[in-house]
């Protein structure tokens, strides 16, 4: 009996990993290509969730699921063109300060527009309910959410591995100078990568809005977990991030089962262990620029 419940928590952990994944993939993409640690990533996640609350009144949940990430993506274009672009060549600490400041400004802007109180938002009625299989219980909404996450993951993998866009992005990650010599301007690709990254964060925001409180600090809450996933997975590695997200989810699930007070701390312990054994992360690539 005990084993069944343990297994249930492991499977649940896999699902929790799903929503770290969306945020961490975007974070990893922006870092790999631009060398910028985007501390403002959580703000785009929060904007995605607030976008969902506002848009659902007009276009429904399905519409908001598409529209909110698109709008946040447009914001991402401005973010890249006018701010990030100035910092690719400079000291990494400057990019860090820039995005840290932006994260605080964004949180305060949200607070000024919508107030500090969480905004009411529920699972759309069509997706409510549970699926019970013997000892196992699944929320229907979470299963749908998992499908969306897997869908987004497959699309991103195709984009990065099977298209011309992806080849340039991957080449740019390793050898930006060589790409430039070949006559390709990386700037446009960088815009694309940032738009993709922040849209994924916004998508995660929309998906989580019905489950967690929609409040100004929600971005800050999820950011540390996303960073831990990227660090564990290893910079520049797609599958590393996927693996790490799942691992963090499972470790948290198991810790919650045995000793809940340590559930937030468990992922940091995992990170320390991974960094001791594999300093570049689980599947991290050797990126010369960052060595």
């Amino acid at each position: 009996m005990q084993f069944i419940f343990f297994l249930e928590q492991v499977l649940n952990g896999l699902m929790i990993g799903g929503y770290y994944l969306l945020i961490a993939l975007g974070l990893s993409l922006i870092f790999s290509l631009g060398g910028i640690v985007n501390l403002a990533h959580g703000a785009f996640y929060a904007l995605g969730a607030y976008g969902a609350v506002v848009l659902t009144q007009y276009v429904g949940f399905g519409g908001a699921l598409v529209l909110s990430p698109v709008l946040v993506g447009l914001l991402g274009i401005a973010f890249e063109r006018f701010l990030l672009r100035r910092f690719y060549q400079s000291d990494p600490i400057l990019g860090l300060l820039l995005t840290f400041g932006l994260a605080m400004i964004a949180e305060q802007i949200i607070r000024m527009i919508w107030g500090s109180s969480p905004l009411a938002y529920s699972i759309p009625s069509a997706l409510k309910g549970q699926i019970v299989l013997g000892d196992f219980i699944y929320s229907r909404y979470r299963l749908v959410m998992l499908l969306v996450v897997i869908g987004a993951m497959i699309c991103l993998w195709f984009l990065l591995n099977k298209t011309a866009f992806g080849r340039v992005v991957r080449a740019g990650t390793q050898r930006p100078d060589m790409v430039a010599v070949l006559g390709i301007r990386l700037n446009h690709y960088m815009t694309g990568a940032v738009v993709l990254g922040v849209s994924l964060a916004a998508l995660a925001g929309v998906l989580l809005a019905p489950l967690a409180g929609v409040h100004p600090a929600m971005g800050a809450e999820i950011m540390t977990a996303a960073f831990v996933v990227v660090v564990i997975g290893g910079m520049g590695s797609f599958w590393g991030v996927v693996l790490a997200a799942v691992l963090v989810g499972v470790v948290r699930g198991i810790t919650t089962f045995f000793y809940p007070p340590a559930s937030e701390a468990s992922m940091y312990v995992l990170m320390i262990l991974v960094l001791l054994l594999r300093p570049r992360g689980l599947l991290g690539e050797r990126i010369e620029r960052f060595e």
Partner: peptide, 16 residues
């Protein structure tokens, strides 16, 4: 269960 103040996911607690 003692729940950390920054916890956002309660699914594991629901199962328990």
């Amino acid at each position: 269960d003692k729940v950390p103040t920054d916890a956002t996911d309660y699914s594991a607690y629901m199962l328990k």
